[in-house]
Amino acid sequence: MHGLINKGIERFVIDTYGQTTWLEVAGQARLGFTEFEAMLTYEPCLTDRMLATIAERLRRPREAVLEDFGTFLVASPSLPAIRRLMRFGGVTYQDFLHSLDELSDRVRLAMDDLILPQLTLIEQGQGQFRLRCKPGLEGFGHVMVGVLRAMADDYGALAVLDHHGYGEQGEEIAIAIVQDPFSEGKTFELGVRCA
């Protein structure tokens, strides 16, 4: 599993539940260290053990943890880059949804060893969509539900999201845009001055 994903989960636990909780998770999951490196690759079993431990400690289903993680990726001020990179997808939430087909290619363009499952958006009319996540990274669909929810908020769109479980073709998410946009949303400028 790519270190960037593991590092993201670590950041999520520390920022949301505190350093102490993270150190307990790292110990209980027998990681053998307390800090992931974003640019290294780790055995997938480490990520599985870490997620199982987090779910157990927080007494929440693994799916809910993954969804919270997805929301955190976009909404957390400590990871501003991800939200910005997502916003390059388009001017409106609909544009953004259409850009998801390219997400795994875009990610690979930036980091060629970070392989995300291919996403396909299926338009069903009247603001209804289905997003298909190809298999390969179990639970990625739940992370995407969190990402899509936070991005709707960012664009000022009101969207209802539903994870439709796992099928042969992977995971599927139902998206219904109720209103686009219902509020102003956050501004997005292409260039930001570095502090």
Binding site: A81, R84, L85, F88, G90, V91, R106, V107, L109, A110, M111, F188, E189, L190, G191, V192, R193
Partner: peptide
């Protein structure tokens, strides 16, 4: 894009500028 606070709407849909800026940010991250 910094000096003039440009957005998506300021570029033609076929212009690769947005992709270029995406890459610049992703690569620097």
């Amino acid at each position: 894009v910094q000096d003039y606070a440009l957005t998506h709407a300021d570029f033609a849909a076929t212009d690769l500028t947005i992709e270029l800026l995406y890459l610049v940010e992703a690569k620097s991250a």
